[in-house]
Design a protein around this nucleic acid. Structure first.
Lengths: 223, 223
DNA sequence: AATTTTGGAGAGTATAACTATCTAATAGGG
DNA sequence: CCCTATTAGATAGTTATACTCTCCAAAATT
């Protein structure tokens, strides 16, 4: 497959594919001559994965590259790889120094995880993300009860069980990991969308008249 | 309060505050002279809200401005306002034209919402987000069973009920809305963090040895 | 033989969110 | 009242990300 065909099959402009090649996101095609290379189905699949993580998952290309580099490193076990991916797909949170509010929130996070008995590494970035959310709530003069946090945690764990249920560790490493990462990111987006839609529904029921919001209702909707 | 004090209390650089003023995110202080203005607690609160939505919620400043403009518009009811906010805090999804995969995914989304009986407007952007996730899963050659989507939906709705439970519609409009929006964004971040932590826990239990992932961890690990 | 495509490299563009500089007008301390 | 620091307001510069465009010589296609 030529680069132009790769472009047509994926819907990604040639210039962008070249950019991904330069950035090391996509492996080079097999060179057949000085100005010719051929690309395989693997390239197409990889390209689709990159676009899925970038467009749908909104992951920075640098993160995607780190993940793919790990995927291509045969030394790394499936388990480690998935762990690394879980770290890479989250945002990086800057931890402030000397901040009493932060320290308090961090204590709450740690106690919560302790109570839940979850097995997570001490340096998991998501701990910081949780702490940041709690600290910010605190700073705004708001608060969440621990009971509520537990309820959220139970819901989150139930979703996580579903997330990983379909992964088959007996599958080929390549396949299991690439699709495992894609599914983790994609299902999260689906879950977020459902969450928002549910909020709208609950909001309509709780304090809404039959006619819900509309900024300027365009006449014919795509149906 | 002078701008320098506002900066100290919020931790936001003066230059950035000026930028927010220019961009209309923060109302101007009360001018006391040609080169002097004084800022109130409301300004400080507003500034903290902006930073919370921007830093923690990763919302673009343009979105934040749109939300705040609506908050300041007394014409808009609490319900409409919250609906608008729910639209603004999600990503914008480009809808492709002429795409069979998309159309199929859209049908699944609509049928799902139909089955759930949720009351959401036909043009809710989250519908597109859900469709996009499903279409992308399809394009990668993967699939999700409808049963699983229902389970996610149930979890999402349970979380949504918690999200809105603490909002008091009898509260002052200003207070209810500003903090309602902040809480929606902040609790979502907390939920996402818990989700990731739960995934790590489940992953460790399902296909991990006692020692979970770490970028540089002891060798014992064979999957 | 003429036209198109390609790989590889570099430069240019768009957007977002700041950050820095400048000017004239104060404000506050001594 | 003088002097230094601060401020509002405006303009310009910076950084990061993700492309997008242009060029060139070689190879492929017509």
């Amino acid at each position: 497959m030529k680069i132009s065909e790769l472009s047509q099959h994926s819907g990604v402009p040639v210039a962008t594919i070249k950019y991904y090649l330069r950035e090391g996101l996509l492996p080079k095609g097999e060179a057949t001559a000085a100005t010719q290379a051929s690309y395989s189905q693997r390239h197409l699949q990889r390209l689709r994965l990159i676009r899925a993580l970038s467009e749908v998952g909104a992951l920075p290309l640098a993160r995607i590259r780190d993940i793919l580099d790990a995927v291509d490193d045969e030394e790394i076990s499936l388990h480690k790889l998935f762990g690394l991916a879980l770290y890479e797909i989250g945002p990086t949170v800057a931890v402030p120094e000397e901040d009493p509010t932060w320290d308090r929130a961090q204590r709450v996070s740690e106690e919560l995880l302790e109570e839940l008995g979850w097995q997570v590494t001490p340096h998991a970035p998501s701990r910081h993300r949780l702490t940041q959310a709690l600290a910010t709530i605190d700073r705004l003069g708001l608060s969440v009860e621990r009971r509520v946090l537990h309820e959220y945690a139970d819901l989150a764990r139930a979703a996580a069980v579903r997330d990983l249920e379909w992964i088959d560790p007996e599958d080929s490493r390549e396949h299991a990991v690439e699709f495992g990462i894609a599914m983790t990111v994609l299902l999260e987006q689906a879950l977020l969308a459902l969450h928002r839609l549910a909020q709208e529904d609950v909001s309509a029921q709780r304090f809404g008249p039959p006619a819900p919001h509309a900024p300027d209702d365009p006449p014919a909707d795509t149906s």
